[in-house]
Design a protein around this nucleic acid. Sequence first.
DNA 1: ACCCATTTTGCAACTTGTTGCATAATGTGC
DNA 2: GCACATTATGCAACAAGTTGCAAAATGGGT
Lengths: 177, 177
Amino acid sequence: MSLPHAILTALLEKPSSGLELTRRFDRSIGYFWSATHQQIYRELGKLEESGLIRALPSEVPARGRRKEYEVLPEGRRELCRWVERREDPKVGRDPLPLRLRAAGVVGLRNLVPELARHRDLHLARLREYEEFERRDFPGGALTEQQRVQLLVLRGGIDMERGWVSWLTRAVDELGGG
Amino acid sequence: MSLPHAILTALLEKPSSGLELTRRFDRSIGYFWSATHQQIYRELGKLEESGLIRALPSEVPARGRRKEYEVLPEGRRELCRWVERREDPKVGRDPLPLRLRAAGVVGLRNLVPELARHRDLHLARLREYEEFERRDFPGGALTEQQRVQLLVLRGGIDMERGWVSWLTRAVDELGGG
DNA sequence: ACCCATTTTGCAACTTGTTGCATAATGTGC
DNA sequence: GCACATTATGCAACAAGTTGCAAAATGGGT
């Protein structure tokens, strides 16, 4: 039940349309979550139906027509409950280490180049996040909200660093013999 | 499509029953994947039906009765195809950073103790993995399969270290003021 | 005015993951 | 040999995530 809450957060930060949300998920929210536009539209429908958000008033019934949403008080309350809730951590879900482990049984085959490719992709993501940090948080006084956003961004950075260093070691050890 | 392949890998390492697999998922495979026993039983059914694995012969039809599976040649081939496949990395899916970000909007409320709790849980997991490393990989010559398993384990360790350090910093910065 | 690519919203079918419960066999104490 | 917890397998209903496609509006260009 994280997607609706991720959407509520994003909408509180700034009222948006479905597509806009999709784009923001690829950027600032996507360090730890991702969602396709279909997921988002469906969820927006549910959230509207249950009275947590509403579409900003517009005349036409709108299909293929831009539709902005904003959070209602009940939506904010639900988000508060979620923040306060106690919930245990989940283990990650990345198939790559699994594939490496499979390779331990069926042989390395062509996996090392794939590991290197992933290392490069994670490195690119890392660079991008570091760029966000430089661009969006130039030193100086930060609001509480900005401090939290920066913390989350740094979490994303730490994770990507972890991937890069692990994959680098893996390629080294396996590629080198 | 990772679960069936994770099961194939585990069964190749050692033919097992459903419950045994469930336990092994909580241990050596679980660094990057998890599965409940229901998921595993369902998947075992599918894999058997499509001829990738088979139940080791036993007289009685068996309900509530231990049932061992082994991988058939077609299953091994499928696993090879999976290892060779090109597949992009997925972003993580952990709700905690999302909740922190939500707290940036609705206020920190009681989140800091929850962050500390997660830090402790990740730390416990980290200790457990380190214990696995000490116990199952005492220095000396390793087979290729063991080297790969150790690499995967170290990936799990790196990720947990990342969590612990990030959560430590988060608790520090937010708790302290 | 018309064509066409793009933007934006959305449906439907499917796969995967989760939750709660049911049922059969096995082991243990008495 | 009976009661009871434990082990082991499984069903069914649901929730969440994925994939492929469609259709309405918009904004050029000609």
